[in-house]
Amino acid sequence: MSAEQVNLTIDGRDISVPAGTSVWDAARALGIDIPALCHDPRLRPVGACRLCVVDTGQRNLTAACVRPCEDGMQVVTDSADVERHRRMLTLMLLSEQPAESAREATTGDDMLYALARRYGIEAVDLPDGAEGCPRGADQSSPVIAVDHQACILCDRCIRGCDEIQHNNVMTRTGKGYTARIAFDLDAAMAESTCVSCGECVAVCPTGALTNKAVHGLWLRRGEGDGA
């Protein structure tokens, strides 16, 4: 490789990587797991969720997935300050989540819930009546359930649709609190040009896009669900 190499330390360990490598990828090469919700190695990084923040000794914490490595950089991925930020971000994202995760029930891999468990979050301290589920759902597809309430607007589904499968069906619509993902020009999923490949479900980190149970089978059931 003729690409220029840069040398840095991550959590005190030296590493040399080609210039342009992200801090997230470099850490991964060292076996250091930096949590991320909006990033996946198969997708173009966008730095939306900020869960992957690390300390590079600068004024602000920086998102590792979009931050290129620099020569001489000293990265700390797990300081108390960093962890405090991540815990707060997790808490804020959870405050909008539905009470139960459709992803935990279907494929068992809700990344936001996994973070909640990692940070020992059992409850979100909001006044009564502050929460609700006003953001809607789309149950039109026979195979994919859309729950906007569980969506954290990480755009993984949009990138999965565009960049992995090149179906170019998904987009964002709305502003501010009403911002949400959409299909075509905000059609119902089943009426859109969606081809049901399920890539959006595969890359979604939360219960926003999940498989409908083909046999009516669930992987896990919550309390009070009965048998």
Binding site: E104, Y113, A116, R220, R221
Partner: peptide, 18 residues
């Protein structure tokens, strides 16, 4: 206060799968 039931879900009996 909003209860977060993530831990409750995982505590429920999972369906045995392979």
């Amino acid at each position: 206060m909003k209860r977060f039931t993530g831990s409750a879900v995982t505590a429920a009996t999972p369906v045995p799968v392979n």
